[in-house]
């Protein structure tokens, strides 16, 4: 249980480090668009997308990645936590009401 939750969180933290250290370099020769992709937000959306409807990992992912993104952001502290929490809430709302998808976590 702990392992299945810890792995995505570690993956999220790795995504933040990629965003702030690796992306500026690979964007130079693979394409500037790479720098515009928010790997961390994308990973949070993927987690929220594939977890169980009643799962809480999406919320944890929004909190952890929001915290790290706020750390390296110029916006007010809490901006990314709020944005990602809203995105997770929207995904959960839409899935609960209208969609059935296979769940992995």
């Amino acid at each position: 249980m702990v392992k299945t939750r810890a792995i995505p969180i570690i993956f999220l933290i790795a995504a933040v480090f990629c965003q702030i250290t690796v992306a500026p370099h690979i964007a130079g020769f693979l394409g500037v668009w790479l720098e515009w992709i928010n790997f961390c937000a994308l990973a949070t959306v993927i987690i929220a997308f594939f977890e169980r409807k009643s799962g809480r990992l999406g919320w944890a992912a929004a909190g952890v990645s929001g915290l790290f993104l706020d750390l390296y952001s110029q916006k007010f502290f809490g901006f990314w936590i709020i944005v990602l929490a809203i995105i997770v809430a929207l995904i959960k709302f839409v899935f609960k009401k209208y969609v059935r998808v296979p769940s992995f976590w």
Partner: peptide, 25 residues
Amino acid sequence: AAYSALNPVQKNLWLASVGTRDFFV
């Protein structure tokens, strides 16, 4: 405090990324 704690990882990743980029270029 957070930058201080994360700096060793960040610094080495940044340097590794420069080296990797140079290799691929």
